[in-house]
């Protein structure tokens, strides 16, 4: 568990990715639970990479990285980027129920009544 401390003390995105990868390797040992943690670390790497890609795509630097999957989808829907939101949903296997809640909240807050009606 001490390794976890290391990878929360990152400097920037590439650094965090490197530390997470190292942690994922460390956890990838015999114990079943550790393997679970290892997978979670890898998933986090994927998340960071996808967030970075989405930021570059929209030219909106730093608004997504290090936020959770839910928050990322929320931000994307709020800014009207439904396509990317859908991509995150399928990539990280977000349950339908959760996606629904995030969508309602995001559309409600950004007063996108049209979007709400459509869906």
């Amino acid at each position: 568990a001490k390794i976890m401390d290391a990878f929360t003390n990152f400097v920037d995105v590439p650094d965090a990715i490197a530390k997470l990868r190292a942690a994922a390797d460390d956890f990838n040992v015999s114990s079943k639970d550790f393997q679970g943690v290892s997978r979670l670390c890898e998933e986090q790497v994927e998340l960071l990479q996808s967030q970075k890609a989405a930021e570059e795509h929209s030219g909106d630097g730093g608004s997504l990285t290090f936020s959770s999957v839910s928050d990322t989808i929320y931000t994307l829907i709020s800014s009207g980027d439904f396509k990317s939101a859908e991509r995150f949903r399928s990539q990280f296997k977000v349950t339908d129920k959760k996606f629904w809640w995030i969508k309602v909240k995001a559309l409600g807050v950004s007063r996108n009544w049209e979007g709400l009606e459509k869906f």
Binding site: M4, Q44, S68, S70
Partner: peptide, 21 residues
């Protein structure tokens, strides 16, 4: 346990893994 850990991390961020621990 694994389901909730995943759901919680997905919603509240990766750092929550430490709190759960």
């Amino acid at each position: 346990y694994e389901l909730f850990r995943r759901e919680i991390m997905q919603t509240y961020g990766f750092e929550t893994i430490l709190t759960l621990h």
